[in-house]
Structure formats: C-alpha cells, structure tokens
Write a protein that binds this DNA or RNA. Structure first.
Lengths: 335, 335
DNA sequence: ATGAAAGCGCTAACAT
DNA sequence: ATGTTAGCGCTTTCAT
C-alpha cells in the first residue's frame, strides 16, 4: 500500500507537503507541487479513506434504515436518497431490518461504530431500542414517517389526510353513498393514521346519507382477498372501497373480479401508495400517491443540512398525498 | 470519545490489556479483567471500528453494485446478500449505478478507498472501467450474471437455456406451432443470451413444422405494448409468445387483452423472471423463474469464501431457470 | 514556502 | 500475567 511517505521520498519533500497538495490546504510552490503530483502518478497512489476519516472524524458515509426491501414502497425512496448522496460524495450503508429488532440493532450498532456521518430511519417501526441507540450516539439522523409527533428531530411526515379527503370527496361526487375502508395491520402506526384520517373525513358526511364501515386488512394481497369475502356478504354491497394500500386494493379487485363482480361498474376501488403495479393491473387502479422519490431526496437533504450545521433548529417536512384517477373508479350505479 | 486510555486509567492497567480483554486475544487474570470490564461499563465505552480497521486492515464491510434499484429483479437479490452479510457481521454499501458509468465509477471508487473487504457486482453492465478499477484494487469480488465467460473470477452464471427449453417444449406439447419471441434491448448481454437460447432450442424443432420469429423489445412494459401491435398484424397470428422478461410479457398481455384478444385462449404467453407482479396480473403469468434470493445468498457466500481464503481456486455457480406454469398458457386452438 | 512531530483509536510484536 | 512501543495512513499545530 503506497502512502504519503513513499510519495514524499520520491518527491523529496515532507509528507506534510504531500498532504497539503492533495488537500489543497495551504500554498505549495508550483515546482514542488509538480514533483509531488508526478510521484503520485508514478506510484499510482490511492488515498486510504479509513485513515483520513480516523484523523478528521468524518466518513462521508450515511446509513439508510428500512424495514423490508421487498416492499415496493422502498425502491424509489432508496433511489432518491442514493442519488443525492452520491452527488454529494457520500456512500450509503443499507440496513434492512426485516422487521427484526435484533437484526436491526446489530447492523445499525455497527454503523454507529463505523462512524457514519448520519442516519436516515425510514423503517416506520417503533423500535424504541434502535432509536435509543441512535440518539445516544449523537449521530445526526432524520426520521421518515416515524409518526411520533412529539419527537424533536428532523422529520418527514406524510399527510395522508389530503389524499384520502380527495378520494372520499371524489367518490361522493360520483354518487357513492356506501363507502368501505380496508385497513392495514392494526399495530402499524401508519395504518392507524390512514384509517383514522378516513374516519374523520367521512364522518363529516354522515348526515348526507353517506355510510361507511372498516374492514381489517394487513397491507398485503391476501388481506384484500379476505376483505373481498366480507364485502360480498354485505347487502347491499358497498359501491366503493378505499384501501389502506395498493396491494390490498389489488387483492380485493382480483378477487371480486374472479367472482364475477365488475370493477369499476359494480364496485369502485381506490388504493394508496401508487406502486408501479397499480398502473399495470386491469383496470388500472385509481390510487392516492406519495411522491417517494422526492421523499428520499428530501430525507437526505435534511440530513446533509444537519450534518453541515449541527445547531440549526430541527426541520420538518410534510408530504401531501394526492389522488390519481385511473380506471378503477366510476359513477355509482345505485342512484 | 472514550478510548482505551480512559479505560486503562480507571482500571489501572495498560491499554494493551484493555485491548486484550476486549478481543479475548490473550489470557487476562479474572481480577484485572473484571476491573477493565467495570471501567468500560462505567464509561459506556463504544469501540471505534474505523481505528480498528485501520490497524487490522479489515473493515467488515462489503459493496453491492446494482444497476437499477427500481428493477424488480433486485430487491430479492439484495435481501439474500444483506441477510447473510449481517449474519456474518458485515455491513453493506449499496451502489446503484443507474446505468451511469460516471456515477458508478465515483461511488465504487470511494468504496475501494474506504477499504471494503469485498464487492459483489450485479450490475450486469459491461462497465469495463469499473471492472478495471476493481481488479486493480486487488479487493475480492464476485460477478453476478456478468456473462464474460473468459473471466477468471468467482462468478455466478444464469442458465436461461434450461427454463427456455422447458417453456418451448411445454408449448409444443400443448400443440403450438407458431411461437414468437420478444427480445430485450439488443445491447444488453443477458437479453442477447436469452434470445440466442430461444433460437437454438426452437431451431431443433423447425422440421417438426414449428415456426418462429423474433420481435424486438426493450425489457420494459412498453416494449410489450409495441410488440403487441406487430403481433396483431401477423396472419395467422402466433398462438404463443415467449418474452425475454416479465414486464414485456405483461405489456403484451394487457395490450392484446385490450384489443379483445383472449389470453390464453387465443394466445399463450410466457414471461421470464417471475417478478412478484407476474403472480398478480390476470391471468397469472406462466413464467421462467430465477431464484433471486438464493442467487444473492450464493453471491455473498462466494465472496465470504474468497475473503476468508484468498488462494482457493476461483469458484463458479450456475443457476438453472425453471418453468412455472400458471394460467397464461393453454392448449393451442389451431389444431 | 516547508518540515517535525503529535495525535486520531486501535493492534500486535516483543519484552519481562 | 502484563506492559512498552511502534505502527496503520492521514491531518494539523507549531516552528522556522
């Protein structure tokens, strides 16, 4: 491994000077600079960033914590984070907790000890231990959709209410009067919030002859499949269903279709997330969108801000959701 | 930052002893060990892995290079890699080249200088520069689907032939006589290979009255959509189409359906990749599967082997593909 | 305009 | 059974 001493020897200067020409951190006469650069060239010098980090206390590395790489929610978030990270000369450590606290703790603990400059926690998990570990480390961090409103930290919140409101009002404008909601897993905060947003909004219309009901799902395809069975039992069936996520909506849609129930003619369906799949199913799914790429990008922006100036006040960003109208919704036929 | 000296001072021992109790690297009497451990506890000591790595030359960190995080091919690969990596006490740096050589070079160059212990290249890109950079670094690496048969390196190859053969023979057994193939982008090696595998196999049946044709696609949905138009022009239309990937197959299927062509009654369709989507579309897609999770797991196994014993012979693993029969294929009606 | 030397936190050969 | 010391490759203060 060639190092400053090797270069210094050949260039006949001190290793201090080598450091200074490499980092442009003080004036070096053109001649000596030239000698140094030539020596570097000749030896094909590659800096050891580990040593530099140990000396400077800065690693140009950040950690990104997610809970399930297979969840279609994440790829665009990762892309947003990674793209700006690389542009800003950072590498990213990916930690997939897999909903496993032990595993998360292990790999994130290692990141902390590897002195990452910051961490983005987008695992939407109430892993208190993990959180404690990070806070104690004094490493800058950003929370994405953490939903603990009282936490004083750089955070990104999702406002599902805006999109859900649009969805409900859109359905009402199409004449729907019986609107169901399929929820996510009941211990998942983001699912609870989505459900409560729905309830709060639709309650305002209850005296307008609008009725609703919540069916429990699990944010997976089979949650939608099971919900379909319950919905078919209803008499009359709801003419519209909003789902806590797209996978649920797709499971629901496929099952109803398989049982001869036309979508959207008989039942209008709205999803949430706007995963790639939602465009591709037939009919294409009307859904509520979160701008995931932008969320990732914003997360790293907040983190870099924090890294570069530790004492600015904590920042918060809200992401509105919005309705994307496709073909799984139409005028209610029950008028 | 508390370090060995702080601990040593409190425990009244030398920092060497501290190191040895932490690493269990030589005998320390129970009493002094106890003193050291108590001091560590008291100071809430956390090791600085950067310093340790600088001293040992080992970082317990590996790099994973992919080309497009949004490609549904990758999440399971990443999962396979990450899972075993964490279990083996490694963290992973994720590099998404985004098909951008500059970007890839930049972030991978940084990884090398950050002294990763190894790199998995699953970017299926002929980025010669990138490759050169890695080889020169002498860091162990594993190639996934690199398709440069002459390279002497730990590698994982995909054998598309086995699955494509199954697919072709399955279609023939169903009575299909006119079988088309929609290819991927013509500059992508894996796409070329898939296409050539198809051609080689079907040629064997040409004198059995089986005819074929290649239509160019691009491994994206719209490639399938465009191919649908060409296929509809044919007279008679092929009764079966094999696609170079699932997205193409889905684009094709959706378009044909939209134009009133029943799948599989009129045209049988087979995809390749078995992405999650392929189960969910309707009808569920018959497809050729690659075991991606296992591939990821195998990649890191090879890498860890290499890291742990630099001088074993280069290893190679072949992954067979196999046909998964779902509902997008049926008996040919042209008999 | 350049160098000497200490230090970042840890490891490990060499002593005793 | 434990300590002294040099060293990993780099940065940076203090001198000159």
């Amino acid at each position: 491994m060639v190092n400053y001493n090797d270069i210094a020897k050949i260039a006949q200067v001190s290793s201090t000077t080598v450091s200074h020409v490499i980092n442009k951190t003080r004036f070096v006469s053109p001649e000596t600079k030239k000698k140094v650069l030539e020596a570097m060239q000749k030896l094909n010098y590659k800096p050891n960033l580990l040593a530099r980090s140990l000396a400077t206390g800065v690693t140009h590395t950040i950690g990104l914590v997610i809970s399930d790489i297979k969840n279609p929610f994440y790829p665009e978030i990762i892309q947003g984070v990674e793209e700006l990270a690389v542009k800003s000369d950072y590498n990213i450590f990916l930690c997939n907790t897999d909903y496993d606290i032990e595993k998360g703790l292990k790999s994130i603990g290692a990141l902390i000890r590897k002195k990452v400059d910051g961490i983005i926690i987008a695992s939407s998990q109430a892993d208190k231990f993990l959180f404690k570990e990070i806070v104690e480390s004094t490493i800058p961090f950003v929370l994405v959709d953490w939903n603990e409103n009282k936490i004083n930290a750089d955070s990104i919140y999702f406002n599902f209410e805006s999109g859900i409101k649009e969805a409900v009002e859109y359905l009402i404008s199409l004449g729907h009067k019986k609107i169901y909601f399929i929820s996510g897993p009941k211990d998942l905060k983001t699912a609870k919030i989505r459900k409560n947003n729905f309830i709060n909004i639709i309650k305002k219309y209850e005296n307008n002859n609008i009725s609703y009901k919540i069916i429990e799902g699990n944010h997976k395809i089979d949650g939608g499949i099971n919900a379909a069975k319950e919905i078919e039992k209803e008499n009359p069936m709801p003419t519209a269903v909003i789902c806590s996520n797209d996978l649920t909506a797709i499971g629901l849609m496929k099952t109803l279709q398989a049982n001869g129930i036309k979508i959207p003619d008989k039942v209008s369906i709205i999803g949430l997330d706007n995963i790639m799949l939602s465009e591709i199913v037939s009919p294409p799914l009307t859904t509520i969108e979160l701008e995931r790429y932008l969320i990732g990008k914003t997360a790293i922006e907040l983190l870099l801000n924090r890294i570069n100036s530790k004492d600015i006040p904590k920042q918060t960003r809200y992401f509105q959701t919005k309705l994307i109208i496709r073909e799984s919704t139409t005028i209610a036929k029950n008028l």
